[in-house]
Amino acid sequence: MFRKPAAAVRPLVLALVVASSAWAVSACAPIVLGGAYVGTMAATDRRTVGIQVEDKNIELKASSRLSGRYGDKGHINANAYNRKLLLTGEVPDEAAKRDAEEQARGVENVRAIVNELQIGIPTSLATRSNDVFIEGKIKASLVDAKDLFANSFRITVENGVAYLMGRVTEREGKRGAEIAAGVSGVKKVVKVFDYITEEELQDLSKVKAEQDQSQAATGSSGNR
């Protein structure tokens, strides 16, 4: 089977990951990825489907609590992975930073909060657009890395600072951080990982392989 060289594939990968992140700049942006793509991403995630759903609910509830709370003096992003909630953005003062964390703690099913809010003026739309572009470049670079599973990482970029979340081994976390740090425009890398052992990774791989075999068998029997 003919395969496109990596150099030809990479621009397409970058375009896809940038498009999938574009909603972060505008809440009114349409969903651009098809259900099949989203379903595949969910199936290859190291979180259970139930936790993935919980994480999305946590993000929505946290964003609802914090959106507009500080008027035009604040800009907050809420990203959840494995029920760990990461807060990034800008708030007017320390009191607002503490208040934002307190509001986030009131969200159901949150097990931990990482408060990375900065004190200062909210970033411009141009800066946020550039952050989305940088995020896309990091994701594309992770896809290029043959020794990593890119979908194990959740990337958030805020004012040039790259925050890395995911269920990864220490080896994967170190390698992923090195790749992110080497991307043009990244000022700093902050690791917000949930670490697993190499043995746990092997167990996850076995479970995934068994699930794939089961789904393949079910599909074959259904097509008869």
Rank of each mutant, 00 (worst) to 15 (best):
V183C: 04
R83H: 11
I134M: 01
I134P: 00
L117R: 09
G106A: 12
L87A: 08
N115C: 11
R83N: 14
Q118I: 08
L148G: 04
G173T: 03
A180E: 00
I138T: 01
G160S: 04
G160V: 02
A177H: 01
L87I: 15
G185Y: 01
T156L: 12
G166V: 03
A162Q: 00
F133S: 02
L164C: 08
V161T: 14
N159E: 13
N109S: 13
D144Q: 12
Q118M: 14
G136V: 04
A140Q: 04
L86N: 06
A177Q: 04
R105G: 11
I119K: 11
A126M: 10
G160R: 00
A112I: 08
N151H: 10
R128L: 06
A177S: 10
A100K: 06
A78K: 03
V143I: 14
V157N: 00
G166D: 06
R167W: 15
R154V: 10
D144L: 09
E178D: 09
E158F: 13
K187V: 02
E172D: 13
D147G: 09
V91H: 08
I138N: 00
A78G: 06
A140V: 03
G182N: 13
S184W: 14
E101I: 12
T156M: 07
G173P: 01
N151F: 05
G182E: 13
G89A: 08
A150N: 07
D131I: 03
V168Q: 09
F149E: 11
R128V: 08
E170G: 05
L85Q: 09
G136C: 03
N79V: 15
G176A: 11
V132Q: 02
A126E: 08
A140L: 02
R83K: 10
N115Q: 09
K187A: 03
E90K: 14
V114H: 11
E116N: 11
I121A: 13
R111I: 11
A78H: 06
I138D: 00
L117C: 10
R154W: 03
N130Q: 09
G185S: 06
L117A: 12
A95Y: 14
I134L: 02
R167L: 15
A145R: 07
S124C: 06
F149R: 14
V183Y: 01
L86K: 07
D93K: 15
G185Q: 01
K139H: 05
V183L: 03
E102Y: 15
K146D: 08
T123L: 05
K137H: 04
V110Q: 04
A78C: 10
R167Y: 09
L87H: 07
A112W: 07
E170S: 13
S129M: 11
T123C: 05
V114I: 15
K188H: 07
R98W: 09
E135P: 00
G160Y: 00
D131A: 02
A104L: 13
K146E: 12
P122F: 04
T169W: 10
L148Q: 08
E101N: 14
